[in-house]
């Protein structure tokens, strides 16, 4: 029981971090970025190359991952989303293809054997029969800190409020002097950076492989669909629903079921509650 509670909390924090960058793009730009999982992969591999291949300090590896993620986000906005005028179907098809291309690129550069990341923080913590690695604990704490910072950024800064404004009413934002295109690009950069840092933690929790972009993408899609998009708080809540569901099903039923219930939940919510649990479309 304690095991489930602790593992559930740890996993859910990470899932919230994985999902938030994806939900931001959906609420601001009204498109699903199916290459979002590739940010996690780019972040994970960048960190691996800098910290483990080049033996540079870990913080430099994390910073490099964030930089590459933000760059990938801006590039996708300028080269794909803008030319396609944010047409949802065209963007979804293009970004899905892009994810597969990035996967091929990763295989080409790093080969297709899975790689293990050394823990970002070493050590374990035993609590009530459960074992918690400092690594996953760090990932969860970092997720919470990042989400908290993001929440304040969106509410308390001009650019953050402009991001919410564009997500709620583009015309209203434009006549307030906000340039929606610029805000969209900033959001793509933030989304890429968030995806990349989530990727470093996700890879240190599982492992690096060229197909690692799929399961975080499913988690992110599930959070958007179940939560009915939206708020940072909503993302946190839904991430906990999904995280706990996964821990309970893999611990109590069978480990092979990882991810299955999440996908089933997507279908159930689509059929029963097409607008999601919270049903409002804004950040």
């Amino acid at each position: 029981m304690t095991q489930i509670l602790i593992q559930g909390l740890l996993l859910s924090g990470l899932y919230a971090l994985i999902a938030i960058g994806f939900t931001m793009i959906f609420s601001v730009g009204r498109v699903l970025n199916l290459a979002y999982g590739a940010y996690l992969m780019l972040g994970g591999y960048t960190y691996f190359w800098v910290a483990q291949t080049m033996h540079m300090p870990k913080p430099i590896g994390i910073a490099a991952a964030i930089g590459i993620g933000a760059l990938a986000g801006v590039a996708m906005h300028r080269l794909i989303v803008r030319p396609l005028h944010s047409d949802p179907v065209a963007v979804e098809i293009s970004t899905l293809i892009l994810a597969v291309i990035i996967q091929a690129g990763i295989v080409l550069v790093f080969n297709d054997a899975p790689k293990v990341l050394h823990p970002i923080v070493d050590g374990v913590w035993r609590v009530g029969g459960a074992t918690v690695t400092f690594n996953i604990l760090t990932a969860t704490v970092a997720s919470w800190v990042i989400l908290f910072a993001l929440y304040h950024f969106v509410r308390k800064t001009h650019v953050g409020r402009a991001i919410s404004a564009v997500s709620m009413d583009i015309k209203g934002a434009a006549l307030s002097g906000v340039n929606p295109d610029r805000i969209n690009m900033i959001t793509w950069a933030i989304s890429g950076a968030l995806g990349a840092i989530a990727g470093v933690f996700f890879a240190s929790y599982t492992q690096l492989s060229p197909s690692m972009w799929v399961s975080p993408l499913i988690i992110a899609v599930a959070v958007v669909i179940v939560g009915g998009i939206g708020s940072i708080i909503g993302t946190l809540i839904v991430a906990h629903i999904i995280g706990f569901m996964e821990i309970i099903s893999t611990t109590l039923i069978a480990a092979e079921l990882r991810g299955v219930f999440t996908m089933l939940l997507i279908i159930v919510v689509l059929v029963l509650l097409p607008r999601g649990l919270f049903g409002r479309g804004e950040l």
Binding site: R155, H158, R161, A162, S164, A165, M168, D169, K171, G172, A173, L175, S176, G177, V178, R280, E282
Partner: peptide
């Protein structure tokens, strides 16, 4: 503008603050 185009899920204060963007 016509029909206001406010930001519905932001507070009154935040709506005004977005107006102060420039």
């Amino acid at each position: 503008p016509e029909r206001a185009h406010l930001f519905p899920f932001m507070t009154v204060e935040d709506n005004l603050l977005v107006g102060g963007y420039t």
